[in-house]
Amino acid sequence: MTITASATRVELLSPAGWSPVCDWDLLVPGRGVAVLLPDGRQAAVFRDGNDRLYAVDNRDPFTGAYVLSRGLIGSTPDGRVYVASPLLKQRFDLLTGECLDDEDVRIAVHTARAA
């Protein structure tokens, strides 16, 4: 991948420190990408329609599959932005990791930045 100097980079915090994700411009508003973390875990990074950045676990706790990055983003009438699992459609708040359809379930939230 060639990186132009002017491009804004997206980075993700993990126990190993900030690791690069990709160019900001590569993120499509409203969609996510999957990121492999140095410890072998996977994160899902999203850019929403208002250019905010989110990162959560990529693992869908309901099926065990590593697919949340491929879900669609939505927002509730009160403005909570979530991702809906592409498998069984449960929704997860991208800021808190809470499952909106099952209050006992929550996924981990990661820290991401655009620098």
């Binding site: 409203g30 929403d48 329609g49 208002n50 879900g71 669609l72 983003i73 939505g74 927002s75 009438p77 403005g79 932005v81 809906a84 459609k89 929704r91």
Partner: peptide
């Protein structure tokens, strides 16, 4: 009918 700045949702998008 959603508030301004809404993302839409997984139903209306597709």
């Amino acid at each position: 009918r959603a508030p301004e700045g809404s993302e839409g949702c997984e139903v209306c998008k597709p």
